[in-house]
Amino acid sequence: MAQELATQGGRNMTQTNGADTTVEHMFTPAVDIFEKDDTTVILADMPGVASDDVDITLERQVLTLIGRVKNHAPEGYRRLSAEYREGGYTRTFTLSDAVDQDKIKADFKHGTLRLELPRAAEAKPKKITVKAA
């Protein structure tokens, strides 16, 4: 099933908003991909992202993962130093026809997004019986 999923790894990007000095950093989440039986599992690491801030879209075989990190400064405090970078994560995968797109499952726990991509029934190997003539 490894050929059924192509990763389009991104790069760290900085986006600016015209005259606005707000800068949003876009990071590529670290991803592990596993296979078990007829399912491919993707684990994407998105530390600092809340489950409500994860978006997954699937359009024309392209699976896009987006996670946004919100400002984490405590209310009422003024920031003196910042080593945590705010921004978000984005990663894109191209799926083959062998993935059953209607049965993709996703869950998010402890900063890790887990996707299950089951193999489509028509893509599973079929046993052909040979009859003796």
Rank of each mutant, 00 (worst) to 15 (best):
K131L: 13
R11L: 11
S51P: 13
K105M: 06
Q61M: 15
E4F: 14
V31A: 10
H72M: 15
G67N: 10
P125N: 07
A44R: 05
A106K: 14
A123E: 08
M13L: 12
R11H: 10
I66V: 12
P74A: 11
P125F: 02
N17Y: 07
T129A: 13
A19D: 05
G10A: 14
I56Y: 03
M13Y: 03
A82L: 12
L115R: 03
G76L: 05
T112Q: 11
P74M: 12
L5Y: 13
I128T: 07
A44Q: 03
T112L: 11
G18L: 08
K109Y: 05
K109W: 00
E86L: 14
D52W: 06
R114K: 12
V49H: 06
T40M: 06
V130E: 11
L65D: 03
R60W: 01
Q61I: 02
L113G: 00
L113R: 01
K124Y: 00
E35A: 09
N12F: 11
N12Y: 10
A19C: 01
I128S: 05
I128A: 02
E86F: 12
T21M: 07
V23T: 15
Q8A: 12
K124R: 02
I66W: 05
D32T: 15
D107G: 09
E122D: 03
L115G: 03
A106P: 05
T90Y: 14
S96N: 04
A30D: 08
N71A: 07
L80M: 14
H25K: 05
L58P: 11
L95W: 01
A98D: 13
T7G: 09
V62N: 10
T92R: 15
R91E: 15
D55H: 10
A132K: 10
L65Q: 09
L113K: 01
K105D: 05
I128D: 04
E116Q: 08
T90V: 14
D37H: 03
N17S: 08
R119L: 05
I56N: 06
P74H: 13
T40N: 01
E75Y: 09
D45H: 13
A133K: 05
T22I: 04
T129H: 08
H25I: 09
E83I: 14
G111R: 09
L113N: 00
G67E: 05
V23I: 05
A106H: 15
I33N: 04
T7C: 04
M26H: 09
L117E: 00
T39C: 10
R60C: 08
D38W: 00
D37Y: 00
H72R: 12
E83K: 14
L43G: 00
H110T: 14
T22D: 07
S81N: 15
R114H: 04
R91Y: 13
E86R: 12
G18F: 01
K105Y: 04
T57S: 13
R60A: 10
M13K: 11
Y89D: 02
T21E: 12
L95N: 00
Y84L: 15
T14Y: 12
D45T: 04
T129E: 04
R79I: 15
L95Y: 00
L63D: 07
K103E: 14
N71V: 06
L43C: 00
V31P: 01
Q101E: 15
L43A: 02
F34E: 06
M26P: 00
V49D: 08
